[in-house]
């Protein structure tokens, strides 16, 4: 297996912003000069079905899919989806479920859950803050930019 690739799995259900979160992450990796791949299945995303998106980045990425047992970070938007996906993590992999718990207490608007979780994830990744901010601007095309950046930074400064 080609390592030195960072593998991230986002999971949740339709309408939670899972795919946007993955997109921000992939764009940020691209902006920092790396090769990024993001794949997803979104046929039923808006109909409440399970949604998962895989992001892999590094010098050169082959498979768009992550490999069971080799995922570095699990970013869950939903508790039962998180339980189901836990097997995907590697032994040293990190499950960000604690940040989901915190968001339930601190986040006023669930609409911004995805930027909060991306902020939390960014704490662990070697991508400069400016690239995250640029990525948020690109992905949301200027919509709620200030609010999204504020919530991103909130996630980024959350300690567990």
């Amino acid at each position: 297996m080609t390592k030195k690739i960072t593998d991230i799995l986002f999971c949740g259900t339709g309408g939670q912003g899972v795919l946007k979160a993955a997109e921000i992450c992939a764009v940020a990796a691209m902006k920092s000069g790396l090769h990024a791949k993001k794949t997803e299945v979104h046929g039923m995303a808006q109909r409440g079905g399970s949604v998962e998106s895989h992001v892999r980045y590094g010098k050169r990425v082959f498979s768009p899919l992550t490999i069971t047992g080799h995922v570095d970070f699990l970013v869950p938007f939903d508790r039962s989806e998180a339980d189901k996906m836990a097997v995907e993590l590697s032994k040293t992999g990190i499950n960000l479920i604690k940040y989901l718990d915190i968001s339930e207490k601190t986040l006023e608007n669930r609409f911004f859950l995805n930027t909060f979780m991306v902020g939390a994830l960014s704490r662990y990744l070697d991508i400069a803050e400016e690239h995250w901010i640029e990525a948020i601007k690109t992905v949301f095309k200027g919509k709620h930019t200030d609010e999204n950046i504020r919530i991103f930074l909130e996630g980024r400064s959350t300690r567990i």
Binding site: E23, A26, M30, A36, K38, T39, E40, V61, P64, L65
Partner: peptide
């Protein structure tokens, strides 16, 4: 196929 059509990359 789906994994090409719906994969994004640089």
């Amino acid at each position: 196929t789906t994994r090409i059509a719906h994969t994004k990359e640089n």
